[in-house]
């Protein structure tokens, strides 16, 4: 990149040369045009009168939400317990299933790069691209409404996430250590246990706790499609316009999420 130009004895300095500058301007222009175009399309589908009315509506809604209906809190214990269970058990299932998938997906441990690895990668992408709510939607039609569908949904959604991070961790391990173990004459399984597992264990634990934290948040909505937890109650309260109950549930959700985030941060801190 030459951006120092000598012009009539003066050295002109520009941050970039002409072509790079041009490319940047063109990309900005294209990005802006894309944004404006998309906004235009959305704007066509929007009833702007509602939007302008929204602040008033919001004020009205907020007024109806106070004070929260504290009396209900005893009835929320069970839904919150279910929510936490969905997240925890779902994470456990996901973590257990993610290990073999990650092992097959990592370039340095997969049994076959041409056959097994693409399958493992497809499992990861498929699991990651489908939102847990869509998984729940499917599972509710299959296994019926309830906590069970929620657990499986969270599990299926999290396999991809855990496996992706885990296989990246496996690919980043120090090959020297593995080689040293292999040099002792260890079998393949022994190499894994002594050479690979100790290196990825902290990452593995960190990923599990991180995903658990995310899953707490995700499992608060599964009830909307019938998959158990506090979302069920929230949906009912909203459809029946019991706003004081709604506000209490929102507070409970915030509380749970903050606590889980705190726990997850503490545990990750302890591991690293």
């Amino acid at each position: 990149m030459m951006s120092v130009v000598v012009k009539g004895g003066l050295k002109i300095w520009q941050r970039r040369d002409r072509n790079a500058q041009l490319a940047i301007w063109v990309s900005w222009l294209a990005a802006t045009a894309l944004f404006v175009y998309c906004f235009q399309l959305i704007s066509e589908k929007t009833i702007w009168a509602f939007v302008w009315d929204a602040p008033a509506q919001a004020g009205d809604l907020a007024a109806r939400m106070v004070p929260p209906d504290w009396g209900l809190i005893r009835h929320l214990a069970r839904p919150i317990w279910d929510t936490i269970n969905i997240a925890t058990l779902g994470t456990v299932i996901a973590v257990i299933l993610a290990v073999p998938v990650a092992y097959c997906a990592a370039r340095n441990t997969t049994p076959s790069v041409t056959l097994v690895r693409p399958v493992a990668l497809f499992i990861i992408v498929a699991s990651r691209s489908i939102n847990s709510l869509i998984w729940a939607l499917m599972l509710v039609t299959i296994v019926g409404p309830g906590v069970f569908a929620g657990i499986i949904a969270i599990g299926l959604r999290s396999i991809g996430f855990c496996a992706k991070l885990l296989y990246e961790a496996i690919e980043e391990i120090d090959e020297g250590q593995v080689e040293a173990v292999r040099a002792t004459g260890a079998t393949g399984a022994q190499v894994s246990v002594y050479g690979i597992v100790p290196q990825v264990l902290p990452a593995f634990a960190g990923i599990s706790v991180f995903r658990w934290d995310i899953n707490i948040r995700e499992s608060t909505v599964l009830g909307l499609v019938g998959a158990g937890g506090i979302g069920l109650e929230l949906n009912a309260a909203i459809t029946q316009l019991h706003w004081t109950q709604v506000s209490l549930m929102l507070l409970v959700i915030i509380g749970t999420v903050i606590v889980s985030e705190w726990v997850s941060a503490k545990v990750r801190h302890a591991i690293i």
Partner: peptide
């Protein structure tokens, strides 16, 4: 913290109430 505590769908329920059905609430 508020933004991170609520799953998108919960937020969407409220924004749909405020802005009406359609992509604007989603945005």
């Amino acid at each position: 913290t508020v933004s991170r505590s609520f799953q998108e769908v919960i937020l969407a329920i409220f924004f749909v109430k405020l802005f009406g059905f359609g992509p604007f609430a989603g945005v």
